[in-house]
Design a protein around this nucleic acid. Structure first.
Lengths: 158, 158
DNA sequence: ATATTTAGTTAGCCTAGCTAACTAATTCTA
DNA sequence: TAGAATTAGTTAGCTAGGCTAACTAAATAT
C-alpha cells in the first residue's frame, strides 16, 4: 500500500444499510467494478499500462496541460507524474514544452502517435461492450445511457 | 507495465464508432471510471490497499478458497496471490489451512477481524454514494438500480 | 516404477505509488 | 527594491504489487 494521503476528513453522513439508497449504491458499485474488470482485457492490447493510458487520455483531451494539473487530474503526486510523462515522452507519445508564461512550468501535449494509439485503444475497449449493447433491446440501451448520465452528475460535483 | 499476459485472442468483432451501442458504451465506461474514482477516497480509510481489499472480499464471500482459485478470481498470477495472502495473514485478517483432500493445496479463509474490517469498509464506501442516491427522486434511483442489474448481466457471461 | 502434471512458494526484476530534499522561478512584503 | 516565502517541477530512495523463471512436494498418468 502506498503511504496514505491525508484527506480533508471527508466523512459525509453515510447512508444507513437500511435505506433504498444503500442497496442501490451497493449494486451500482459492484456493477462498476465488474464492468471495468471485463474491459481490462482489451486495454492490454494497447501495450500501455492503465496509469499510462489514463494519463495519455487526459493529455489528449485536456490539451497542453501543466504537470501539476495532470497530477491533480490523475490524483497522484507530482513525482509520479514526472516519471510517467518521462516514459510517455520516451515512447514518442507526448512532448514537453516550456511554458512561455511561467518559466518554471511545463506544458505537456500529445503527439499524433499518442492520439492515434489512444483512439485505437478506446475503440477496442469500448467495441466489445458496444457490441453487447447492440444486442440489447433499444429500451434497455436507452436506460443504460440515461443511467450513465445520472452517474456522471452524481459523481462530478463531489 | 507488468509483462503482458497472453490472451486467448479475445477480439470479438468490435462495434463501429457509428452505432448507438458504441456511444452508450463510451458513456458507460466513462461513468464507471468516474464512479469508482470518487469512491477510492473512502477505501483509503480502511488502511488496506485496493488489491488487498479486493482479495479479502473474495475470501470473505468466497468461503475457504484455494490459492489458485483466488488468483483466478483476482486475475493475477499465483506468486502475486502468495505474497498478498501472506501479508493479509500477517495482519490477522485471513488464515491458511492445509487442504485435507489434497496435501499440495491450501485453503484460505477470513478471520472475524477480516470480516469486520471488510464490512466496515463496504459501509463507508457505499455510504457516501448511498447518501447521494437518497437525494435523488425515487424514479431515478430505480433507473440506476435497474441499470446495475443490466450491467451485471452484460458482463457476467463475458 | 517412473514420468508428467498440478499447487504453491521463492527469487529476482519492473512499474507505479509515496515522502523528502533539492533547484529555479515567481510573488509577496517590510 | 532586497530578501523571504511560495510554487513548479525534478531527483533520490523507499514500499507494494505485478510479472517470469525456477524450484519442491504431491497427485496422477503411462
Amino acid at each position: 500500500m502506498p503511504a496514505p494521503r491525508r484527506q480533508a476528513a471527508a466523512a459525509a453522513a453515510p447512508a444507513s444499510p437500511r435505506t433504498p439508497g444503500f442497496a442501490t449504491a451497493d449494486r451500482l458499485h459492484s456493477a462498476a467494478i465488474h464492468l471495468l474488470r471485463s474491459l481490462r482485457v482489451e486495454d492490454r492490447a494497447s501495450g500501455l499500462s492503465a496509469p499510462r493510458l489514463s494519463a495519455l487520455s487526459v493529455i489528449v483531451f485536456g490539451g497542453p496541460i501543466a504537470m501539476s494539473a495532470l497530477a491533480a487530474a490523475e490524483q497522484v503526486r507530482p513525482p509520479t507524474i514526472s516519471r510517467l510523462v518521462a516514459e510517455l515522452e520516451r515512447l514518442g507519445l507526448v512532448e514537453r514544452d516550456p511554458d512561455p508564461a511561467d518559466r518554471r512550468g511545463v506544458k505537456v501535449r500529445a503527439t499524433a502517435k499518442g492520439r492515434q494509439l489512444l483512439e485505437e485503444g478506446r475503440r477496442r475497449r469500448v467495441g466489445r461492450l458496444g457490441a453487447a449493447l447492440e444486442a440489447l433491446p433499444p429500451r434497455e440501451r436507452k436506460l443504460l445511457a440515461r443511467a450513465a448520465v445520472l452517474i456522471e452528475a452524481l459523481v462530478r460535483p463531489a
